[in-house]
């Protein structure tokens, strides 16, 4: 198992904190629908940093990468197919009422 230096950990932690502040600041600016996109991109970057360095995925086997890939792929299936229903419902006039 590869040993990652302490310095790397400190740098990653620092950038995560910076990104957190960035998330907050980005939310204060009115970007319309892009607010959500920006927030999610920053979150994805932070998540990737944690997976790659804190969780050592960068130095892990292909198998670990396959597991991560499968998890994300299946999450994607759950999202895309469920939303394929909700985003195309207009012809049914199926607004939620009550």
């Amino acid at each position: 198992m590869k040993v990652i230096s302490e310095t790397t950990y400190y740098i990653i932690c620092g950038s995560l904190l910076v990104f957190t502040v960035l998330t907050y600041l980005a939310a204060l600016v009115d970007l319309g629908e892009w607010n959500l996109v920006v927030a999610l991109i920053i979150a994805a970057v932070k998540g990737s940093l944690i997976i790659l360095f804190f969780m050592h995925a960068r130095y892990s086997s292909h198998l670990t990468w396959m597991v991560i890939g499968a998890a994300l792929l299946w999450l994607g299936i759950l999202f895309s197919l469920t939303l394929s229903d909700y985003l195309t419902r207009i012809p049914f006039a199926s607004v939620l009422i009550f």
Partner: peptide, 22 residues
């Protein structure tokens, strides 16, 4: 098998287009 679950809901109120995809 993970891409077809919507076929349980063809008449249950899912969107017509989603139904076609499923």
């Amino acid at each position: 098998s993970f891409l077809v679950w919507g076929h349980h809901m063809f008449v249950a109120g899912e969107s017509m287009y989603a139904a076609m995809a499923f």
